[in-house]
Design a protein around this nucleic acid. Structure first.
Lengths: 214, 214
DNA sequence: CAAAAACCAGACCAACTGGTCAGGTTCTTG
DNA sequence: CAAGAACCTGACCAGTTGGTCTGGTTTTTG
């Protein structure tokens, strides 16, 4: 594993590609796809524009490559939850994971949000199908929990929407939050926000907050 | 009141202005500011492009005019809540109001979200100040409720963020929701989502859901 | 060490797009 | 009803921007 990786990481091309993707992530998050200038990405990556187009055939190609990388962040421990697991534990962990993404990769979250708001024009139907089946399987687990009496009656869709919305909000609306709180949220505030959110949602659907999230 | 209004509404200019704003709302919501073409707005409003520029000096001018109209939607009954009011009643109504905006004006919600995600480049500092002082006064009311024992201990900021996030989600992420649920949400589903959300949040902060929201 | 592959970058361009201009027509009003 | 205000629109343009082309240099590899 380290072999193929190190080979890739060593090559000057791989380093440039990484830098370009990082630069692109910031630019696309701030300006959106249309508003982003290839020249600005190049400036940020400290490369000539031609060089950016050398590594990624086109602006679209670069955006798509970036989007693909971003989508891989959306996996989590919740993916493998089973009916016999503890709902409180699983959901609390899931919420905390989501909050961690918002804290560490706010730009990735923003790009994803922009994509969805614009009607997901660049999300492949493969991704959509995959996402749908993921949703169906998770809804099914939540329903099993409800049948088993481990989780009070609640529409699983709305519960998941709420988790996504409120955790993602901390990334997407960071500008508003910074404005309203007077300064950007630091790690401690994120920890508090996470506790607060876990409590709100778990208590909201009648679960007890696990000790390590209190 | 009807005098000045009717005069305004009758004039051909006012009608065109309204049509252009409506067309612009849809275009900006789908494509973002940079991605929107004046020509497309004109097509949608069934006017020549020059005509659009005649009524609104520039693309920026049109966007700003639209944004101003949109911001006026953000007022609600919660603005005037007092310490002596009932938290459950006030918050439930506030949540329902927000959901209603998502249902009726999804494009407006999207444009607002896009603006914030991009770092609010077009929101005047006047609006920001106004928004900040609104936030402060509402946080203060929530704190009073907590002191009076009418509302359990919770960070007022996080509570408000959660309300905004989860209600706005239904507008901003409508494409995702439609994809996952198989079809767009109708009025009945919105009503169910609202009930679900009111219950989740109120129960989440230890309040009893008022009968008319059950 | 040679040659192929990978990388680099200035000059250039075609397409697009916001916005102007000039010459109208229609509506309002004194 | 005259004249000014409001409205309309085709023709046009200048700036921007994604992307190409060409001629390199550096790195890898057999």
């Amino acid at each position: 594993m380290s072999d193929s990786l190190s080979k890739k990481n060593d090559s000057i091309g791989a380093i440039n590609r990484t830098n370009i993707l990082a630069a692109a992530e910031k630019e696309f998050a701030i300006h959106g796809f249309k508003g982003t200038r290839v020249q600005r990405i190049a400036d940020r990556a400290e490369l000539p524009k031609t060089n950016v187009l050398y590594y990624f055939k086109s602006k679209d190609g670069l955006y798509l490559a970036l989007l693909q990388e971003i989508l891989s962040l959306w996996n989590s421990s919740f993916d493998n939850a089973k009916a016999q697991d503890d709902p409180a534990e699983v959901l609390a962990t899931y919420i905390a994971d989501k909050m961690e993404i918002s804290r560490l990769r706010p730009d990735a979250s923003k790009i994803f949000a922009l994509e969805i708001i614009n009607g997901a024009p660049n999300l492949s139907s493969f991704f959509k199908d995959q996402h749908s089946s993921w949703m169906n399987s998770r809804v099914s687990v939540l329903r099993q929990w409800i049948e088993l009496g481990k989780l009070p009656e609640i529409d699983p869709h709305y519960l998941l929407f709420n988790i996504w919305a409120s955790s993602q909000h901390y990334a997407d609306f960071s500008a508003q939050i910074t404005e309203l709180k007077g300064q950007a949220m630091d790690q401690i505030e994120f920890a508090n926000a996470t506790k607060s959110l876990v409590k709100l949602i778990l208590q909201g659907c009648g679960l007890t907050v696990p000790p390590r999230f209190q």
